[in-house]
Design a protein around this nucleic acid. Structure first.
Lengths: 339, 339
DNA sequence: TTGAAAGCGCTACCAC
DNA sequence: GTGGTAGCGCTTTCAA
């Protein structure tokens, strides 16, 4: 209460020189004390005077000045362009951030909507981050080069596949497709539809999941039929209306939401699930358990973030190694009643 | 292709002095040219030489050095602690960021999990942001003061209610509760349950929604009954089993997910929806339309972000005014079949 | 039209 | 133990 500074808004921002003046010492001493510099021994009374002066003034060190002097930052820039927005990724980044902070990095998320693939890395580079984690889709070889030359020790891409010249955290969405199809094959299905959302967002993910589906189907002599679908009841009803003409005995519906939409439409059209057509979603939403039949799904898991924080730290400390690829995504079929 | 710099990883980061040397001019000239300084006229050939030298070296200006010299930054720090993670907010922040970038601000998201309410603002202040937008829950008066004294021209809180001494973007969740209850009252219900999730995350939101519900109910002589519920089928089944003992004729279920869970459980327990008990959710999920009966809901909307970007800009340019409060949340009942 | 130089806040080297 | 001070990269007066 009594410690609240007097002038909330006016007045210049206090610097270490102000602290030094108030404590009656030099700026060097202030720096030593506030950074707990072990290489130099300062008497306890002096330390106290400095600390008191600092809190009295509400002194906060100036990160820009510090890193300018140091010649490097400890900033990890997490570029969030075109990022999957679900709770799974949200939690993952959250934990990755905590892990990196524990290693004394400053993590900063930088959204770059509207900037193109050349401008965005330039904008990031201006902050001189020591490491950059960005979606592979936002990072061209030129972009990687810009970041490297601006002092980034580690450039790490994130996405369905690696990008040449950078380390990669791979979330191979094919895994999801192959997992779903594998499950359906096991249950005796051979003519399988794969829902392809017509919305903008899921486009790339859907392509990769389809690719994984095709891969597995091919090696088992099963048929894969892509099924464009908008996330609207009419679109689903239309698809359901011509369902029997397509001769499918199963469908992998991209994710649980599309699966629920389609399953309802199929049921309304008199198609029995799973007898006539099996349905599998993905993401294992709680809601799928409420439907009748309960929705089979593919559960996704991301790797534990702490080892990745350690990885970043290692790449920063020993840069220049060969690009490393780490697989983040684990997928597993969850069998319920709809398949 | 041919423009790719040669040494990807080694070598020092090029500075404006390097550009000057290569172009055969002074550092001052480099600065004039690259910043399109209108106050000084540079010959066209010189400009070209400078620009070519810059691209040849892959020069990227050093934001820290620039802002150190300028005495201020154009960084807007968006603190993301305890933020609702839904698509609604996600889109909102995304657009706010775009709007601010259009005004030439650098927007940076800073997660601060693990830092307490005193440390977090200090960490933010080290970056000397010109404006800070942070959840009200993460911002004590001390924190606000620290930011002010570190040069932040605008400190803006975000949340259910304003915080003393700062501008506020208010998302008054009571609105949601009162809207839901208002709808149920209109439809003749008088004894209304309000689901309170027992999970950690929604706690505060649920409290506010309940408060709004109580407010409206009180003024209409209706009864409100809080109903703790975990997001699990057993918990819902248990609640449904003792439903008739409670004598409720309606329930506002916190959001659509809890509503779906509970509605299913009620139906399984033989309670007719909406005849015996009306059910209302919130968030207006697409999935609610797939249930039978279709789920009534409260649709949430956040204000258009562009005016808020303009607001931030105005507060930065003319600091010191009285704290402003802006209401962001709009709620509206969506009547379907479950109420 | 261009160049020289000061100085933003900070840390680390070197004297005392 | 403590202080003086150079210099990180940049912009901007002031002089030429």
């Amino acid at each position: 209460m009594s410690q609240l500074p007097k002038q909330p808004t006016e007045g210049p921002v206090p610097t270490s020189a102000d602290v030094a003046r108030l404590a009656g010492v030099s700026r060097a001493t202030v720096s030593y004390v506030l950074n707990n510099n072990a290489a130099v021994r300062i008497s306890e009374p002096t330390r106290r005077r400095v600390r008191e002066a600092a809190t009295e003034l509400g002194y906060v060190p100036h990160a820009a000045a510090r890193s300018l002097r140091a010649g490097h930052t400890r900033m990890v820039l997490l570029a969030t362009v075109n990022f999957p927005a679900g709770p799974l990724h949200h939690r993952f980044f959250h934990q990755l951030e905590s892990g990196l902070r524990r290693l004394d990095y400053t993590v900063v998320q930088y959204g770059s909507t509207g900037l193109d693939a050349d401008d965005a890395p330039r904008a990031w580079a201006e902050l001189r981050p020591v490491a950059v984690i960005a979606p592979g889709t936002a990072l061209t070889p030129q972009g990687i080069s810009v970041l490297r030359r601006s002092g980034a020790k580690a450039v790490i891409t994130l996405g369905s596949r690696p990008v040449a010249g950078a380390h990669a955290l791979v979330m191979d969405q094919r895994e999801v497709g192959s997992c779903a199809i594998g499950h359906l094959l096991e249950r005796g299905r051979r003519r399988i539809g794969v829902v392809m959302p017509e919305e903008r967002g899921p486009g790339l993910l859907a392509e990769r999941r389809l690719a994984g589906a095709r891969q597995v189907a091919l090696s088992h002599g099963a048929r894969i039929e892509p099924l464009p679908l908008r996330y609207e009841e009419e679109s689903a009803a239309r698809l359901a209306a011509r369902w029997r003409t397509m001769g499918l005995d199963a469908v992998f519906a991209y994710n649980d939401e599309y699966a629920m939409l389609l399953m309802r439409a199929l049921q309304d059209a008199g198609i029995e699930v799973p007898r006539e057509t099996a349905v599998v979603g993905a993401d294992d939403l709680m809601l799928g358990r409420l439907l009748r039949p309960r929705l089979s799904s593919v559960r996704l898991e991301l790797a534990t973030p702490q080892p990745l924080a350690d990885l970043v730290d290692r790449l920063v400390q020993h840069p220049g190694g060969a690009p490393e690829h780490h697989d983040l995504l684990r997928a597993g079929a969850v069998h319920r009643e709809s398949s």
